[in-house]
């Protein structure tokens, strides 16, 4: 049931991507509006699927060990948030991609940028459905912690914001290279968007790293152990700290900031995917 919904959402996002693309190529706001309707519909279904899976795994956990009293129910529900394996994290990551643009950057995310984000969300979901084990499994003892929710949530919201900055940066660079494209995305807009999205991403990534450290200290007795995933999140953080200082203190703008945003997002992708597949460690989704 839920995987069927995810399949439908994948297609809706894909359709939204094409509509946005068409809007970008023809500079037609009507297509933008249609694309946004698709994106919002997909997002509502996506949210429902996420909550549905949360419900399902809570039910499953309740069957294993029925909770007694409100507090135990609450704790169980918090623990069962569907962010515990690779499939669930992909579903949530792709949920974050359209969320930020739908909430707070509506004016910017039209045309090519909207298309880019919808396409990315659609591809991630397709990969989750086709290439990754989607079974709900009982929670490993090491993941039983209230920090799991906070840690994963903040990290992924941050990643979503960085994806937005990345999309804006790509368009910025592209626009500089081929200024004759019809969709004249305004360069100052993109520049500002890169910065604003990076700020949101940076704040959430900082919270993600901090909650991760507190969790690690509480669970394993070491707030920092130079696990490859931790280390890569630090690298990502340093790159974005560099970007923010370069822009705010040294006044860099435009192309150089855009390239830093691209570099930062490559580091995000490596933190998220590369580390799991290429380097061994605590956070690897594959073990």
């Amino acid at each position: 049931m839920i995987s069927a919904i995810i399949g439908i959402v994948t297609l809706i996002y894909l359709a939204a991507a094409f509509l946005f693309l068409a809007a970008g190529l023809r500079a037609a706001p009507a297509w933008d509006r249609l694309a946004r309707i698709f994106l919002s519909t997909g997002w509502v279904l996506h949210t429902a699927a996420f909550l549905g899976r949360w419900w399902q795994s809570s039910l499953l956990a309740a069957q294993h060990s029925p909770p007694a009293g409100f507090q135990e129910v609450l704790r169980m529900v918090i623990l069962q948030v569907p962010l515990a394996n690779f499939y669930e994290s992909l579903v949530f990551f792709s949920w974050c991609l359209p969320t930020l643009p739908l909430i707070s950057f509506r004016r910017y995310t039209t045309g090519f940028l909207g298309g880019l984000l919808s396409l990315l969300a659609s591809l991630l979901l397709a990969y989750a459905s086709l290439g990754v084990d989607s079974h709900i499994r009982p929670l490993m003892p090491a993941l039983k912690s209230n920090w799991l929710l906070l840690h994963v949530l903040t990290c992924f919201v941050g990643y979503g914001a960085f994806a937005l900055a990345f999309g804006a940066a790509l368009l910025f660079i592209w626009q500089l290279r081929c200024p004759l494209l019809p969709a004249a995305t305004s360069l100052p807009y993109m520049d500002r968007l890169i910065y604003q999205a990076t700020v949101i991403g940076f704040v959430f990534l900082t919270l993600g790293i901090v909650t991760g450290a507190v969790w690690a200290e509480a669970a394993w007795g070491r707030y920092w152990s130079w696990d490859p995933k931790e280390t890569w999140s630090l690298i990502t953080w340093l790159i974005y700290a560099t970007l923010l200082h370069a822009r705010l203190v040294k006044g860099w703008q435009g192309r150089r900031i855009a390239w830093l945003a691209v570099l930062g997002f490559l580091a995000v992708l490596f933190t998220y995917l590369g580390v799991s597949f290429l380097l061994p460690g605590l956070h690897s989704y594959l073990t």
């Binding site: 130079w226 490859p228 890569w232 340093l238 560099t242 200082h245 040294k250 580390v275």
Partner: peptide, 19 residues
């Protein structure tokens, strides 16, 4: 601030080497 940028990127490079 140039020194800052240098230090931040050096740290990032060292961390990459470490992984």
């Amino acid at each position: 601030l140039r020194f800052t940028l240098l230090v931040l990127l050096t740290l990032a490079l060292v961390a990459i080497l470490g992984t």
